[in-house]
Design a protein around this nucleic acid. Structure first.
Lengths: 228, 228
DNA sequence: TCAAAAGTGTTTTTTATACACCCATGC
DNA sequence: GCATGGGTGTATAAAAAACACTTTTGA
């Protein structure tokens, strides 16, 4: 890109939209805003905002997520850019889409309420504005891909969790039932979790062991990357 | 995104950068520009351009590729957006990165020469400006991912090609030698190719059968998606 | 003691890898 | 007839999938 050509170039509005996944009551959920304006009054939208001159798209997403959920250090991945000239009827806006994973239990519910955000089960998503449905679908695909070579859950589950809870999370992400035995074997074989000497007896008499994610330095780098 | 907030928002310069892969002489190659200006005079850069108001990022990439190579209908995939505020010393520019696959044999060499573009083997890439090295690495990763669940080659090889040529392409993409027998079996099992009654005798006395990609309607949808 | 959830073990199938071998042909 | 790639077959190993079985414990 020649520097001399920087001046007099067309500039664009650039937004960030976040597909915010949470997990609660055995279901993967999505945080959405109810739109208060025409067009598309009453429809729902992803959580979004403008990108500023002095920040990266990641930083913009972090800023927006912090504002809505009160949380920092949220796990996030870029999905892709949406740039069709007429994707937004309000004007020419490029949107950089991220997906984020958060633990619904620990986010600031006052804030989300204040901003009129609601959680929806991914089995029951309302109609979304513009191309937000496509954004969500791509984000879910990306999450599934990640979940199939890495154990996702660190950001969606409480610090201590059982393998049953982890499996239910996976069932919810992939929309199918994983075999309990095989799932357990696969997860254990990745040796990314530590078992605690502590059981969750709320679901059964026998009780299920709690697990936690290993810290970075505990992880055996040689044992990684397999399909679930 | 509220419509009332569209006005008075900060606007941004948005560029498109293309990681253009080609294949020739048994090597995967990359098309690069030699930079004629300071800063970074003499370093190389990806092929890029500005995005216009009335076009999507994809359309901008198509326009730029058409200008440089003379080709239409080029296979392309979005890699990701690069948006760090200081990534470009010339100013705040967001860059949307695509990778493209083209058959070097059929592109317009006069054009690439005219624009000062050169092909480099991916085993011998010169120093690139800004964050273009990272863009290239991500693009190659994305290409490898695609190549492992889909047969890439339709856009890099001539219409008719031997399985030996396809294997050499894969060797070049992944930087390792695939087992001839196993590679052949795997490719055939995907039943995405048709064998012609025609041999390439330029490499051996026996000759190797030519293959072509099946057309969309010939492809058996049930046989897809496996790792190579 | 038995129901119900947690956890383990066994069998089968599929896929990947390594490598030996046969084939066709021009010299 | 033999060297040289091209192509096929087989044997082994590793993963995934299916599913039977044992363990624990409160009611």
């Amino acid at each position: 890109m020649d520097h001399v050509t920087y001046i007099n170039q067309e500039k664009h509005l650039v937004a960030v939209d976040c597909v915010i996944f949470g997990y609660e009551e055995g279901e993967l959920k999505l945080l959405l805003f109810k739109r208060q304006l025409e067009p598309d009054f009453g429809k729902y939208s992803l959580v979004g905002g403008w990108i500023h001159q002095n920040e990266s798209a990641e930083q913009a997403a972090e800023r927006i997520l912090q504002k809505i959920t009160g949380l920092d250090n949220i796990f996030m991945e870029q999905v892709q850019v949406f740039s069709k000239p007429n994707r937004d009827p309000g004007g020419r806006v490029l949107s950089i889409v991220y997906y984020a994973l958060i633990d619904i239990k620990i986010h600031d519910k006052k804030r989300t309420n204040q901003y009129g955000a609601e959680w929806f089960s991914i089995n029951n998503i309302p109609q979304l504005i513009f191309d937000h449905q496509e954004m969500y679908c791509l984000a879910l695909n990306k999450l599934r891909t990640k979940a199939s070579y890495d154990i996702v859950g660190k950001d969606l589950l409480p610090k201590e969790f059982t393998l049953i809870q982890l499996r239910q999370l996976y069932n919810s992400i992939f929309g199918r039932d994983f075999d309990p035995g095989n799932f357990r074997k696969k997860i254990v074989s990745l040796s990314a979790l530590n078992r605690l000497d502590k059981k969750d007896t709320s679901e059964s008499k026998k009780g299920a062991y709690y697990y936690v994610f290993k810290t970075i330095d505990e992880i055996d780098i040689s044992v990684r990357i397999v399909n679930i």
